[in-house]
Design a protein around this nucleic acid. Structure first.
Lengths: 179, 179
DNA sequence: TTTTGATATGTCAGAGTTGGAATGTCGGTT
DNA sequence: AACCGACATTCCAACTCTGACATATCAAAA
């Protein structure tokens, strides 16, 4: 469960309320770890209870500002240095590839071309983002930049792969299995 | 929820029992959609109840062989052609990248180098697999080959990115934030 | 003064996922 | 005859995730 660590990581930068955290999830982490309100508030309570966070200040409207504790920092560093990222990641998109033979070659090629197009769009959106964001030397944005570069490389790779795969199918004798 | 569709897809190839299905998950789909016994058997029941599968035969040891129904095939094709793959995928590995500034540059570089190494290992394992598997013209393996190529490209891209990211950190002035 | 919109915190039901335990059968070997 | 390994299913507890719902405050505009 990495939601816990995503939250600790954000709070290591600076304290925040649940609401603040949600906004930070949306702007910086949404592409690698989306989270919903119910998750964030729920986890905030659990983390405070277990001592990894503490309520640092209370404000208007019942606002509670949470700060990471020494214990939380230790846990966060432990996670970063001593645990391995999950090896297998589910991929809806790749799952479909296994079953492409259930479609006509035409349909399969259409699917792959659409995927290639979507990857190109994502790539363009990330390039756009790169131009817009203020890449100061604030540590979070240094790292954000590494992640952005990953996104750019990933979407480029995916687009190329999808176009290649479409070609494979086009150049293949029909088996007449579907359609 | 794609477990449902993964199972329909496997059964579209040929009928199978829960036990058979588990083996097929382990050998072919484990890299894109892992599943546990409890999930498979549970879903098998639900799918049969809703008419997308039927019990085609019963064998020794209470074995029930499930086959996809016409309705199931329709649903599978609908999923393939009319629904979009999920856009955002959680990535444990990228999440860590955002918080690399909490480590010393040395530790961060070590993390990225380890990741590069793991990617290289995965790449080698997939190359190995490519050599071993009998790539006949059985439709599932045609598609499996497309997925394998994706895996090869992905791991190569990831390794390069991780090495590049490590260089970025090495070439960066220290801020003394951690360590 | 009323209303609206942004701020702010929370609960709930339902679905999905994990990992393990419990149970039993069949075929072949010792 | 006893045993083992492969076959085969079912149930369970705990946890995570999603999406919707409920509630309330504050500032500023209408």
């Amino acid at each position: 469960m990495s939601l816990r660590h995503a939250m600790l990581g954000l709070l290591a930068d600076r304290p925040a309320s649940g609401y603040d955290l949600m906004k930070r999830f949306e702007t910086s982490l949404s592409n690698v770890w989306p989270a919903t309100q119910s998750q964030v508030y729920g986890e905030l309570g659990k983390l405070a209870k277990s001592g990894l966070l503490k309520v640092a200040a209370e404000g208007p409207r019942g606002r509670k500002e949470y700060a990471i504790t020494e214990e939380g920092l230790v846990e966060l560093r432990r996670w970063l240095t001593e645990t391995e990222p999950e090896r297998v990641r589910r991929s809806d998109a790749m799952l479909r590839v296994f079953f492409l033979n259930l479609l006509t070659p035409l349909e399969a090629v259409a699917y792959l071309s659409t995927e290639a197009g979507r990857a190109a769009e994502r790539h363009a959106a990330l390039e756009e983002l790169e131009g817009v964001v203020d890449w100061g030397d604030d540590p979070l944005s240094v790292n954000g930049r590494l992640a952005l570069e990953y996104g750019l490389r990933f979407s480029a790779m995916y687009e190329e792969w999808a176009r290649w795969a479409a070609e494979q199918i086009e150049g293949q004798p029909h088996t007449g299995r579907a359609g």
